[in-house]
Amino acid sequence: MGEILVVGGGFSGLLLASRIPGSEVFEENPSIGVPPHCTGLVSWDTIRVIGSPARDSIVSSYRYIRVLNTAGKDIAVLKPSQRIYKLDRVLLERLLAKEAEDMGSKIHTRARVVSVDFEGSIAIHGKEGFRRAVGSMVAIAEGSLGTISRRLGLSRKQDLLVGIQGYARVSKNIDEDEILVFVNDRIFKGFFGWLVPLGSREAVVGMASSLRSYSNRAFRIYLAVLRKLGYFRDSSLRGTYGGLIVRGYPITNHYRDRVIAIGDAAGFVKPFSGGGLYPASKQVEAFSTALRRSDGGEALKRYSRLIGDEIRSLRLQWIATKAVEAIGVERAMKILAGMGIRSISMDYDHHERVFFRLIWGVLAESR
């Protein structure tokens, strides 16, 4: 197996470089782990796949997700089949980078890849100007915009959300074993807001909504709602950060010849929440396993067999997500509550089951 060239030094690219010794990573930003843009909530299954960098990045953990409306009224409690863990995303990526370098991989920062061809060649604009590199394979892990992967036909145009969050000092007693999710179809438009306790009365507070409908005014309204409900008194959040969230699914042909798209760039995200750590981890696990056992075209055939179930699951989640989005998240949850369904067991990594239950409840109500 020859050298793997990795376009992008975010989570997916670094995880792959930590799995394939001698990989070469090209990251356009000046340092690894910044800018931060993800809350970092994962299941233990995800931590198990990532390994020690994830275990060493755990900040806190949770047993339940409590869903409320913006009047502060409980609607439902979601009960994941395993605990949810919050990871320090900046630390996670830096630990993955160290693990990759310990495996003999190289990481170049301030190195922007401007083009990729199917022969395994890339063009880089870096500190020394323009240059080219050729590898046995190229993994495009460029993130949510997916410019190169879409240009090559390896991903579809995904729906994009805007997420923004920051830190707040909590003034109200809350159960630190619960994540709070707030639904309001007018404010969040197909998504939701969240409050994630960190202990010592600190919390991450954030929201997301469609790129087309997002406004800073909606975020200010949401923060005003939380202040009115007594969750915190701060006039603004500290350390605000955010970015684009992909909401989509991978196409079957997200690889060709000597090039593959991975992570957000390929649509390997949970369509409802936009969470990419679990799908990307499973994809990297499948791809690196295939590369270790086979070369070239045979490796991609083996990878296709290994990743098939995950792709089918993500497509089902996408169908269910679009249906819930059309109904309205708040409305769907209220209908279930009206039917007496207020406690919902769920698989945190495979949302399709709970979503189809939501849809079934709405259909039953409309009869």
Rank of each mutant, 00 (worst) to 15 (best):
I75A: 05
D257P: 00
G22D: 07
L41Q: 03
L291K: 00
Y167A: 11
L14A: 12
P35C: 06
E310R: 00
F268R: 02
G297I: 03
R48P: 01
E325F: 13
G51F: 09
V67R: 00
A265Q: 01
L237I: 12
G51V: 04
D347F: 15
S105Y: 07
I221D: 13
I50P: 01
E128L: 11
R292M: 04
T39Y: 01
E310D: 07
S236D: 13
G274T: 02
I179D: 02
V114C: 10
G40E: 05
G22P: 10
D349L: 09
A123Q: 07
D102N: 15
S61L: 05
G248E: 01
G40C: 04
R132A: 15
A168D: 04
A224T: 15
A337F: 06
R367I: 15
F356G: 06
D295M: 02
N173C: 08
E365R: 06
D74G: 12
N216F: 14
G296K: 04
G206Q: 10
V225Q: 05
E128T: 11
G338A: 12
P21Q: 02
G51K: 03
Q165K: 14
V225L: 04
A97M: 11
I107W: 12
K322V: 03
I245T: 00
G163F: 00
E28T: 06
R292I: 04
G40S: 04
M339Y: 12
G2W: 06
F26T: 04
F11E: 12
A168R: 01
G239R: 13
G129A: 12
G340N: 05
S313P: 00
V114F: 04
L91Q: 09
S313R: 11
A323K: 09
E202W: 14
R220F: 08
P197L: 10
N184H: 14
G274M: 01
D102H: 09
E325N: 07
R66K: 10
L96G: 08
R258C: 06
T321H: 13
I311Y: 07
R302M: 14
E142C: 10
R233S: 15
I319F: 15
A76K: 02
G13F: 00
S23E: 10
I245F: 00
P279F: 08
